[in-house]
Simulated assay, not measured.
Amino acid sequence: MGKLVIYVHGKGGNADEALHYKGLFPDANVLGFDYMAETPWDAKKEFLVYFDSVAAGYDEVILVANSIGAFFSMNALGDKPIKQAYFISPMVNLEKLICDMMMWAGVSEEELREKKTVPTNFGETLSWEYLCYVRENPIEWRIPTKILYGSNDNLTSLETMREFAQKIAAPVTVMDGGEHWFHTAEQMAFLDRWIRE
């Protein structure tokens, strides 16, 4: 039945962003996935149901995922028949990110374990359950993947990204001056070239 591209947005994004990718995959049906989940365990259920409902009958499925959407996809879809994945600023080490945020917020592991959740002044709520989940469910990802990373990404270091990429044998393309969120005209032009290559 041809080719399907599933686009998974990041936090604060939406499924309409998928429209940008229609021009990059002219021979494919491009769908944006408007998921509701905010935790990896909820996302796992939601992503599996969605994938099975839309991917049935296609000869080839390509995944394009952004930020936390890439993490949720890896957590849920590792066993699915995906031919190729393109990850834009993927969150690849949530344990490290949560521990970094705890450090920024001055919250100890003991305090988080006792309180279960701690709101921070930078808009994220730290969650003991979330931290435990990412520790107990390490990512297993064997799907051929390409990673796009901005050198000014404030959530994941290049070292962390390279370490992960090496583990899954994925090439990393670094945009000098790129941010975690690719959105300017220059950044989107760079992203388009990266996908076309």
Rank of each mutant, 00 (worst) to 15 (best):
G2T: 02
G2S: 10
G2V: 05
K3V: 14
K3A: 10
L4A: 06
V5P: 06
I6V: 14
H9E: 11
G12S: 12
G13D: 01
G13H: 01
N14S: 13
A18C: 01
A18M: 08
L19W: 06
K22D: 04
G23D: 14
F25G: 01
F25S: 04
P26L: 06
L31G: 02
M36F: 13
M36I: 13
T39A: 13
P40H: 12
A43W: 03
K45I: 10
K45E: 15
F47N: 03
F47E: 07
L48P: 03
F51H: 10
F51Q: 08
S53A: 11
V54H: 00
G57T: 03
Y58R: 02
D59Q: 11
V64P: 04
V64G: 05
A65C: 03
N66P: 04
G69F: 00
G69W: 04
A70C: 09
F72R: 08
F72M: 08
M74N: 10
N75P: 06
N75G: 07
A76I: 10
A76F: 08
K80I: 05
Q84I: 02
A85Q: 00
F87H: 02
S89K: 10
M91V: 14
L94F: 12
K96S: 12
K96A: 15
L97K: 02
L97H: 04
I98R: 11
I98G: 11
D100T: 09
M101F: 01
M103E: 15
K115I: 02
T117F: 01
V118A: 03
T120K: 02
N121Y: 08
F122L: 04
F122I: 12
T125V: 14
L126C: 02
L126A: 08
S127I: 01
S127Q: 13
S127C: 09
E129V: 00
Y130F: 15
N137A: 08
E140L: 14
W141Q: 10
I143N: 06
P144M: 06
I147C: 07
L148K: 07
L148H: 11
Y149E: 10
G150N: 12
S151N: 01
N152E: 15
D153S: 05
N154L: 13
N154D: 15
T156S: 14
T156N: 14
L158S: 05
L158W: 01
L158A: 08
T160M: 07
I168N: 12
P171C: 00
V172I: 13
V172W: 11
M175F: 14
M175L: 15
G177K: 10
G178A: 08
G178C: 00
E179V: 07
E179I: 00
W181K: 14
F182S: 05
E186H: 04
Q187G: 08
Q187H: 07
M188H: 12
L191G: 07
D192N: 15
E197L: 11
